[in-house]
Amino acid sequence: MATGGRRGAAAAPLLVAVAALLLGAAGHLYPGEVCPGMDIRNNLTRLHELENCSVIEGHLQILLMFKTRPEDFRDLSFPKLIMITDYLLLFRVYGLESLKDLFPNLTVIRGSRLFFNYALVIFEMVHLKELGLYNLMNITRGSVRIEKNNELCYLATIDWSRILDSVEDNYIVLNKDDNEECGDICPGTAKGKTNCPATVINGQFVERCWTHSHCQKVCPTICKSHGCTAEGLCCHSECLGNCSQPDDPTKCVACRNFYLDGRCVETCPPPYYHFQDWRCVNFSFCQDLHHKCKNSRRQGCHQYVIHNNKCIPECPSGYTMNSSNLLCTPCLGPCPKVCHLLEGEKTIDSVTSAQELRGCTVINGSLIINIRGGNNLAAELEANLGLIEEISGYLKIRRSYALVSLSFFRKLRLIRGETLEIGNYSFYALDNQNLRQLWDWSKHNLTITQGKLFFHYNPKLCLSEIHKMEEVSGTKGRQERNDIALKTNGDQASCENELLKFSYIRTSFDKI
């Protein structure tokens, strides 16, 4: 039985969820670079991206490699990797027998973001014989899940209580170790020597080791999670996991709180800001991140802002960003909400898709409305799209047979046209069989910064309504002859009103 693990408890099935942008060198404390989270699957090609990484700022997932063999891993080693800020997950990587050479110096898994409450997941690794993470000293947050690894031993010899604050939620089941077939031998045991430290858990006094050649490092209890030197002297209180010299914040392997210019500090002093819960960055760093993602459509890219001495992905609820200094300031009234469309555009074809934009005031991208039916549609669209004030790209209304009016965009005031449909149009209306009105132009103002209007096959939309939009939106004169079809717009509506004058002759039985 794995020490510190839980057996036999019912657990939810383990679901495996399925960018080499360097964020800056980590400095003297770390020998390499800070790398983003990685999802490495199918083959070993991307694994080489770990070569210079000291910190993975995010998670590391290595999974679904069915053609790899043990010899493929023999020359692979990433000794610079010290810390993973989120979680480490391995799933069905064939041929991998140990992690001792792959990650010989991995010391800390912070667990800032977890995989279903777990910071370390080893699942269905069919050839893994031992973990071998002999320098792993601290899992700051989260638990361990090690399950269905039929060859995995050296679990009962690990004292997880020396690595985690609590072992109650560890789930370590259905491994070879369960069948008591392992016969784990710690260093020196074969020669009758006791080389590794022994600890007591559940009444068992057991030597602690990761492999037959690597003991588990056990520091004096007084050192807590700070770690200790090879001689057993406690590291500085700002260290986490390990250090090369005692009581020196510049000799830590990793930091308990924050890293700044080669030393570990309790908090980031001005003019620095907390970033990702582990390091200090200056304003320029946060500003660069903001600008890199301002026009990016890459998933996970955030326009970072500053709030409460932190550089964070977005302002919290009730705050909006001051564009001059990136500071989050309290909103006066309802907060603006910028919604970034991942692929640059979004099609609204149902109430469900409209709900995804609920509360958005600025759309960074283009909207395509293609709704053919739905219950209580006008009210639903207004509830979900009615706060949109600005669209950076274009607005396209296409084959939306259920629409009679666009009044559900009740606050839309600006279409920038930074991206144009077919390279020309910022407003595009095609084949809307029941569209009769755009907006009530006596109450609604709309500016279209650039781009043209396109109207074709809107049989109940009168040309007068379209011409009014040209005047109000500032697009009059931009359109070419064929942009607004004269014969297919309003051709099934009563669009022309003329005053009919009647004269009559009164007659009676005795007068003409």
Rank of each mutant, 00 (worst) to 15 (best):
S143I: 08
P316S: 06
G262M: 05
M137E: 09
L64D: 08
F285H: 09
V200I: 08
L102W: 15
F205S: 07
N170E: 05
G183Q: 09
N170S: 09
Y171M: 08
C293P: 01
N117C: 12
G32T: 02
L88R: 01
P79E: 12
P336L: 11
E266V: 11
V55A: 04
L155M: 14
I139M: 03
L60P: 00
P269A: 10
N170K: 07
Y118W: 14
A156M: 07
L44R: 09
P270R: 05
V218Q: 09
N309T: 10
I306R: 01
N135C: 05
L90R: 00
N202S: 11
L106P: 01
H212S: 07
N170I: 07
C209F: 03
K193T: 07
C286R: 00
M137G: 11
E130F: 11
N138R: 15
V253A: 13
P70I: 06
N257F: 08
P270N: 14
L155R: 06
C264M: 00
T107C: 09
F258G: 03
C255T: 00
N135G: 13
Q204G: 15
G241A: 04
I201R: 04
C293F: 10
H28T: 04
G142W: 00
S317N: 07
F103N: 00
D261P: 05
K310D: 13
L120A: 04
D248Q: 12
G58T: 00
L81G: 00
V218Y: 13
E33S: 08
T211N: 09
K100Y: 05
C311I: 03
V34A: 04
A156T: 04
L128Q: 04
C239D: 00
M321Y: 11
D277V: 06
G318E: 04
P271S: 11
G183E: 14
P334F: 15
Q303S: 04
V93S: 02
N202Q: 14
I109T: 00
L120P: 00
S112Y: 08
V200M: 05
F78A: 03
L260M: 02
H291V: 08
H307L: 09
N135L: 02
C215I: 04
D159M: 06
R92F: 11
V218A: 10
N242V: 12
K176A: 13
K191Q: 07
Y259C: 15
Q303M: 14
N138M: 14
C228R: 01
I62A: 01
G111H: 00
F283D: 07
F258P: 00
R145D: 02
E168G: 02
W160M: 11
D178W: 14
S296T: 11
L155E: 05
I146M: 10
W210L: 05
I306P: 02
G203Q: 10
R162F: 06
L174H: 13
Y154L: 06
G227F: 03
Q61P: 01
V126G: 12
I185E: 02
K193L: 04
P249D: 11
D247E: 09
W210Q: 14
E314S: 05
K191L: 05
T189P: 09
C293L: 06
K193R: 08
F205I: 06
W278T: 02
S213C: 04
I122H: 01
Y259H: 15
H59A: 13
R298C: 09
Y94C: 07
H28K: 06
N202D: 10
L44Y: 10
L136Y: 01
G227Y: 13
P313T: 09
P336D: 13
V253S: 14
G318T: 03
Q276T: 13
D169F: 11
S54A: 10
L164D: 15
E207H: 13
M83P: 00
A119I: 00
R263T: 02
S143Q: 04
G232H: 11
D75G: 03
L88F: 08
S213A: 03
R297T: 09
L64V: 06
P249W: 03
G95S: 08
D184C: 09
D288F: 15
L131P: 01
P336H: 12
L174C: 14
S323V: 06
H28W: 07
L136V: 03
T85D: 02
T157Q: 10
D159A: 05
E51L: 04
W210S: 08
V305N: 07
G58F: 00
F123I: 03
L128G: 01
C243N: 00
N309Y: 04
G203F: 13
H302Y: 10
I62V: 12
S225A: 03
S317Q: 07
C153K: 03
N242D: 11
S317F: 08
S213R: 12
I82T: 03
E51H: 15
I139A: 02
C182Y: 15
D39C: 11
V144Q: 01
L128V: 02
F66G: 10
T229Q: 08
I139R: 01
Q287F: 14
N175R: 06
C209N: 05
G58S: 00
Y94A: 05
R110N: 06
F258A: 11
E314L: 08
Q276L: 06
I306A: 05
I172P: 03
N42F: 04
V218K: 09
R145V: 11
T189S: 08
P79S: 06
S213G: 13
Y118A: 09
N105K: 12
P31H: 13
G111Q: 00
L76T: 03
G241L: 02
P336F: 03
T107A: 08
